[in-house]
């Protein structure tokens, strides 16, 4: 009986986290389209509900009632598993995101490594989908994204090392608390810029959306998918984008901490501050989508390996030597 109670409590907690995440993913799709439209002097989705807020709901309904087509020559098990893997990986990562000092589902010691591991597994959904479709466009898209995501993961890993040098712990709450006096975006500003661009590449967002470049590959790895399975890919993608924004907010923008430590600001709960920071980063993502043209593939690889990786490595050496010289290394 006791076990059952514990299990139910955990299930409630998980639902209390997952339902808001899924709803905000739907809302964020609307926000993305809206920002994109405003940059191009269009209106964007504004018909369904007030300001078009219910547009994503209408889209979801449409996807649910559409037929799921499974190509006859596809590898059926892997074809069906691919969107499930994408969606699951995008959602399980939220378990370690701290919304305040106490509001976190799993306060594990290696939180940042867990986040990094889950985001690096995200490539499997795409590869599985692309390979199992047994068709040329999805396969090319999958190959492209495999190379792209592995390349940019390297620089994200090195950037995380930069932050960890200043914190001295892998726990996400410790990382947030270490920014009490100064957000890491100020001393590590170049790393923040590189992190942001690498996050764009990691989530296959424009200008790095080569895996699904519609002019060359129809829809990339999603070409053969339809109905709810396509929608799951799409939800997983946006959940991943939100996750990368959350990661950026925690690593560089002080997580759930209020920007200034004075009376009226400290009243606002930490979850609100974190959501505001995630939204700020997401709007930047949406703006980049609207204003930057797509990279060529060799330019993408050059940027990842020849520019970002050396820069972030040099910055690791700089940070480490600065901290060592001024005796600021966090030792406990």
């Amino acid at each position: 009986m006791e076990y059952l109670n514990i299990v139910f409590q955990e299930v409630y907690k998980i639902l209390f986290l997952l339902v808001p995440v899924l709803v905000s993913v739907a809302m964020v799709v609307w926000l993305d389209r809206r920002v994109w439209a405003f940059v191009q002097k269009r209106q964007g989705p504004n018909v369904v509900g007030p300001f078009g807020l219910l547009q994503s709901l209408a889209d979801a309904l449409k996807y649910i009632f559409k037929e799921i087509i499974i190509p006859s020559s596809s590898n059926k098990v892997i074809f069906i598993l691919a969107p499930i893997v994408t969606m699951t990986l995008a959602l399980i990562a939220w378990a370690v995101i701290p919304f305040s000092a106490t509001q976190v589902l799993a306060d594990i010691n290696v939180g940042i490594l867990y986040l990094f591991a889950v985001s690096s597994l995200g490539v499997y959904g795409i590869i599985m989908g692309g390979w199992a479709s047994n068709s040329k466009y999805p396969f090319l898209g999958a190959i492209r994204s495999a190379a792209q995501m592995v390349s940019y993961e390297v620089s994200i890993g090195v950037i995380i090392i930069n932050v960890l040098l200043c914190v001295g712990s892998l726990n996400l709450n410790d990382i947030v608390i270490a920014q009490q006096n100064m957000w890491f975006v100020i001393p590590l500003f170049p790393m923040f810029v590189i992190f942001f661009i690498s996050a764009l590449a990691e989530t296959n967002r424009p200008p790095f959306d080569l895996p699904e470049a519609e002019a060359e590959l129809v829809a990339g790895y999603q070409t053969e998918y339809s109905g709810m399975m396509y929608a799951m890919f799409w939800l997983g993608e946006y959940a991943n984008i939100l996750l990368m924004c959350a990661m950026g907010a925690i690593l560089f923008l002080g997580g759930w901490m209020s920007p200034i430590d004075v009376y009226p600001f400290t009243l606002v709960p930490g979850a609100i501050w974190l959501i505001l920071k995630i939204l700020l980063l997401f709007i930047l993502f949406a703006l980049v989508k609207a204003i930057v043209p797509r990279y060529r593939y060799d330019q993408l690889m050059r940027l990842g390996w020849k520019v970002f990786l050396p820069l972030s490595l040099i910055w690791v050496v700089l940070t480490a030597s600065y901290l060592f010289y001024f005796n600021l290394l966090p030792v406990n």
Partner: peptide, 16 residues
Amino acid sequence: FLGMIMLIVYVGAVAV
């Protein structure tokens, strides 16, 4: 730590 590094290195990079 070993478990996470296993996930990152082997699953996230080598197996890909």
